[in-house]
């Protein structure tokens, strides 16, 4: 299929992107396009205009930044996967970037595009949630920071305003224990269930992929760990507060069971 007709504008600056967004309510930003274009080809989404920010090369970077790592929103998965900085300072990001989609997708898809798309089945939003990442949005009034906990308010919804561009993502240095357990039917598929675990402050942050309308932290598990529970015991609380979908990849019940197994395995690996 072919997308419904739309206007197209390629912008050279973030300010131009913001101006273009403000000029057309039906406009959408196009980064790598690997979340948006498939939806448009099936005509599930029909924006009036695409604002191509794919050439804002200034927003493609990974560098150490004080206590953390700063990642430009237009950094491609392929570049995250290959980034020595990430491999050393936040290896879960590099590793998971290499598990998203397939090589062709990773050559085009960007971390910012994935975050803005806010797919609860996306790997990267879940990992960034576990890391407690900070998201930098640039809008008409300048920049603002959004905490991870506030970034994904609903299904396919991010906290970005209609006239904001996600410009940077900051993650803490987490070279220690981590694990991402991605359960798929086929390698190229989205996770049926994914679990990110990152060792932090002697315990672990745990988040869940595709267990509800948004990526979410496994609050029950984290609470149990904080209370001294061992991984197997804590993992039993993996599905607390979740609302997993039932679809052709698995039922609600199965996903809950999977989440428990995968959380246990993730904790065993991250805390080993």
């Amino acid at each position: 299929m072919i997308p419904a007709a739309f206007d197209y504008e390629r912008v050279d600056t973030v300010d131009a992107a913001i101006a273009a967004l403000r000029a057309d309510e039906g406009a959408k930003l196009l980064a790598g396009g690997h979340s948006l274009l498939p939806q448009m080809k099936l005509r599930f989404v029909m924006p009036t205009k695409l604002i191509d920010i794919g050439r804002l090369h200034d927003l493609s970077y990974v560098h150490e930044d004080g206590g953390g790592v700063a990642i430009g929103a237009l950094t491609r998965y392929h570049d995250l996967e290959a980034s020595e900085t990430l491999r050393q300072l936040a290896p879960i990001v590099a590793s998971v970037a290499g598990q998203v989609g397939d090589p062709q997708v990773r050559h085009m898809g960007t971390i910012g595009g994935s975050v803005a798309h806010a797919d609860p089945a996306g790997d990267m939003p879940s990992v960034l949630l576990a890391l407690g990442a900070t998201f930098v949005a640039t809008g008409p009034g300048g920049m603002r920071e959004i905490a991870a906990a506030d970034m994904f308010p609903g299904l396919f919804q991010s906290a970005l305003a209609g006239d904001e561009v996600l410009t940077e993502i900051r993650v803490p240095k987490t070279p220690g224990g981590w694990s991402y357990q991605k359960f798929t039917r086929r390698a190229q598929d989205w996770a049926v269930v994914g679990v990110a675990a990152v060792r932090m402050n002697g315990s672990a942050n745990v988040s869940l992929t595709n267990m509800g309308l948004t990526p979410m932290r496994a609050a029950g598990v984290e609470e149990a760990l904080a209370g001294g529970a061992d991984p197997a015991t804590a993992a039993e609380r993996a599905d607390e507060g979740t609302a997993p979908p039932s679809d052709s990849f698995g039922s609600d019940e199965y996903r809950r069971a999977l989440a428990k197994v995968l959380v246990r395995r993730a904790l065993e690996e991250a805390l080993a």
Partner: peptide, 27 residues
Amino acid sequence: YEEAMYDESGNLTTSTMTQYLIPSATE
């Protein structure tokens, strides 16, 4: 892997290659 699935109204739910699971070289 493969199975054509329908919802309760009879619409094909495995309606694209993202839901109808043709295995790749990895599988």
